[in-house]
């Protein structure tokens, strides 16, 4: 079992804080109503209270309730209630490939989405796992992500299909995957989109998947399939691979545009700042 600290070390946590601060600066303000967009933008009527948790923003602490009841309660607004992010993490074996492995950045990306939601008073759900509310429970999300290693044979399609069959479609769905699946695998996501789910698709590919190196006759062993094929990786083969990959990415991009998804492609060497600020934010992701 992988230790949480191995994937989400202290440096990563500092990156999250720095990312949060940077996003707030880019949004031009701090506090309620100053962030978010899309369907939830402007919806800030008071919804009620919830118990205080360590780490909660003290500015939203209800001192009146404390004076009356002697306990700390946090004020909740309607918009925050709707800021619930559902995270679909591709746990297929293919995510183990790459240097660094794709699943590392994928899990950190998922954690970052969850952190940002929790930090803004929202909640986060890793598909198949209990919902996590309050930034104080962020560690629980990290544990869930730690256990979500790239060992499953179920990719995006299976998890999305399960979500689609669920009674209530998630409002915000973040999908972190390498996207190296047949386009048919993304149909469950399309059905979710038709049910007004906002889909953000983060595609993580390793540098060698984006730009493979030539090298004579090679036996390529697919982690996903558990099979191998032999290819002469000369210049012409590499060129053909690039063309095929570009075709696949282009098709996925077309699907994304057609369904209103936010799509960001990154290599597994990128850091969070590059991904969120450099790619997701310009692409219109709800951050």
């Amino acid at each position: 079992m992988t230790d949480t600290a191995e994937i989400f070390d202290s440096a990563f946590l500092r990156q999250l804080e720095a990312l949060d601060a940077a996003l707030l600066r880019l949004r031009g303000g701090v506090g309620e109503g100053a962030r978010g967009h899309g369907r939830t933008q402007g919806q800030s009527e008071f919804r009620g209270h919830r118990p205080y948790s360590p780490g909660d923003d003290l500015r939203r602490l209800d001192w009146n309730a404390y004076g009356r009841l002697g306990k700390f309660f946090m004020r909740e607004y309607e918009r925050e209630r709707t800021e619930h992010v559902t995270i679909l993490l591709d746990c297929s074996r293919s995510m183990a490939a790459g240097t660094p492995p794709k699943h590392l950045l994928a899990r950190r990306t998922a954690a970052a989405f969850g952190y940002l939601a929790l930090k803004r008073g929202g909640s986060a759900t890793l598909v198949g796992q209990p919902v996590v509310e309050g930034v104080a429970r962020f560690s629980r999300l990290l544990e869930q992500l730690t256990n979500a290693g790239p060992v499953s044979s179920t990719g995006v399609a299976g998890q999305a299909a399960a979500l689609a069959q669920h009674g209530r479609a998630p409002s915000d769905l973040v999908v972190v995957t390498d996207g190296l699946e047949p386009l048919e695998s993304f149909r469950p996501l399309q059905s979710l989109s038709e049910r007004r789910t906002s889909v953000t698709l983060v595609q993580v590919l390793s540098p060698d998947e984006l730009d493979p190196t030539p090298g004579g006759t090679i036996e390529l062993r697919g982690l996903e399939e558990g099979e191998a094929i032999e290819l002469q990786l000369d210049a012409s083969t590499i060129a053909a691979y690039r063309a095929e990959l570009e075709s696949h990415l282009e098709a996925l991009n077309t699907v994304s545009l057609r369904n209103g998804w936010t799509l960001a492609l990154t290599d597994s060497e990128a850091d969070l700042q590059q991904l969120f600020i450099g790619k997701l934010l310009p692409a219109g992701a709800s951050l």
Binding site: A97, E181, R221, L223, E224, E225, I229, L231, A240
Partner: peptide, 19 residues
């Protein structure tokens, strides 16, 4: 070693068919 691990053979199989 003349083996190389890749995440998936999805793209490579298409290339192999061509070559």
């Amino acid at each position: 070693p003349k083996q190389r691990e890749v995440g998936t053979l999805l793209i490579w199989r298409r290339v192999a068919q061509q070559h």
